[in-house]
């Protein structure tokens, strides 16, 4: 079956969506990512959508769902690389994606993800060095 690859890098998972996704592919990604977070105990997910020419309400909902599910699984999600035309269209469509953290590019996204994960660890007192 067709799948979007999920790369594991230490505590993080990286996903680059480079194809025009049909709905089933989007659902499969949602399942695969949540499973990967649980299996690897990942603390952060970076999703790069710079190649996506459109984000409609279905894909937008899938991205928001991933972020919400990851949070429940104790992982942070950052969405990076949204094209300006996609952002304009998404807001006009009525989706402002509340609760989804974003950054302009992969580099800024990785910085944000590290910050979020370390801030979250301090908050919960779940610092590996203290164990």
């Amino acid at each position: 079956m067709e799948r979007i690859p999920i790369l594991r890098m230490g505590n993080f998972l990286l996903v680059t969506i480079q194809v025009d996704m049909h709905d089933q592919l989007a659902m499969t990604l949602q399942d695969d990512l949540t499973n990967a977070i649980a299996n690897y105990g990942s603390r952060g997910v970076l999703i790069d959508i710079s190649s996506l020419e459109i984000v409609d309400s279905f894909i937008g909902r899938m991205l928001a769902n991933i972020s919400g599910m990851a949070r429940i699984l104790d992982a942070q999600t950052v969405l990076v690389g949204m094209q300006p035309a996609v952002a304009i269209t998404l807001v006009e469509l009525g989706m402002s994606m509340p609760g989804v953290k974003t950054a302009l590019n992969v580099e800024a996204g990785m910085d944000l993800l590290r910050e979020l994960v370390s801030a979250h660890r301090m908050e919960t007192g779940d610092d590996d060095s203290e164990v």
Partner: peptide
């Protein structure tokens, strides 16, 4: 993909292309 190709042929701006493709996706679904 067809709507995208036709929007380009009509010389729609990138934002207009994106809007039309997104609308077609919603309505087709």
């Amino acid at each position: 993909q067809k709507v995208r190709a036709w929007s380009i042929e009509l010389k729609f701006s990138l934002v207009d292309q994106t809007k039309m493709i997104t609308a077609s996706s919603e309505l087709a679904r």
